[in-house]
Amino acid sequence: MDPAGLPRAELIEMMIGRRAETVSFGMPVVDRAREVLRVEGLYAPDRVHDVSFSLYAGEILGLYGLVGAGRTELARLLVGAEQAERGAVYIHGSKARIGSVADSLYKYSMGYVTENRKEEGLLLESAVRTNLGITIWERIVGKFTRRIDDRAETQAAQALVAALDIRTTGLEQEVNHLSGGNQQKVSLGKWLAAGCDILIVDEPTVGVDIQAKAQIHRLLWDLAAKEGKAIILISSDMPEIIGLAGRILVFKDKQIVHEIAEIHEQGLSYDEVSRRIGLHLN
C-alpha cells in the first residue's frame, strides 16, 4: 500500500512533478481459440517454481515482478537457453522439446529479445546486416554451394531498417556505433526477420530514448494486433506494461502470485491495475 493512502498516480505526480506517461493503443485483438503456448508446472530450482499459464494469438501478456522474481529465468527456460527440471511446454497444442535456442527458433518459431542487448543480444563488432540476418542464413543458403544469398540478406535487412526506422549510415555499419534505441531495434529485428510467431521481449525499452521507446511500443502493439503474433512482455516499467499488456501475471519469489486479466476490455484504470500489482508484491 502506498503511504498516506494516496492513489499511486497522484503519489508519482507529487514525487516527479508530472503524471507517469501512459501508453494506450485501444482494444487488443486476441484470438482465444488459438492457444499458441501453454506452460504446465514448469520447475527449475532457484529459477521458477511450478509456473503454469497460456498465451494466445494476438495477445500481449505482461510479466511483472521484481528483478530475480523469475521472469527472465522463465524466458530463458522457454527458449531453451536453460533446461527445466520438470513441467511441460505445449506449442500450438503439441508438446515441445526445446533443447536449445536453435530448437526454439527453427522448430517452434520463437524468439527472445534479451534484457542485456550489449552482452547477449548483439554482435557489437559486426555489421547491422549480420545482426539482422543471423536468424535467416539457414533459410537463404544454396543447397549445394552452402553459399548465403547476399541479395536476400540485404533485402531482408533493408526492409527491417525501413520498417523499424533504424538510424544507421548503412547495412555495413557496426552496431557498436548505433544509439541504444537503434541497437535495441536491431536486437529485436532479427526475430522479425525470422518471422517468429512467438516473441518474448525482456525489458524492451531500457536505456532507449523516448522516441525509439514510443516506436517500439507501437511496433509490439501492431505485431500482436495486426499480425496476430503472441508476445510475452517482461517489463518493470509500469506504464509500459499496463498500456501494452491485456493481461498481466505478477511474479514473486519464482512463482506467479496473481493474474490481472481483461485490462483493456474492462477498462481498468492505470491506478487500479498498479494498485492490484502493488498489493501482491508487498
Binding site: 535456442v101 548483439l122 554482435l123 549480420t130 543471423i134 542464413w137 539457414e138 543458403v141
Partner: peptide, 23 residues
C-alpha cells in the same frame, strides 16, 4: 559466404549472443 563460416565468426564475436540467436 557460408553459414558455417558466419556462425563461427558470430560465435567468436560474442558466444552468448550467438547462442541466444540460435547458433
Amino acid at each position: 559466404h557460408t553459414v558455417f563460416g558466419r556462425r563461427l565468426l558470430a560465435t567468436g564475436g560474442n558466444q552468448e549472443a550467438a547462442r541466444l540467436a540460435g547458433i
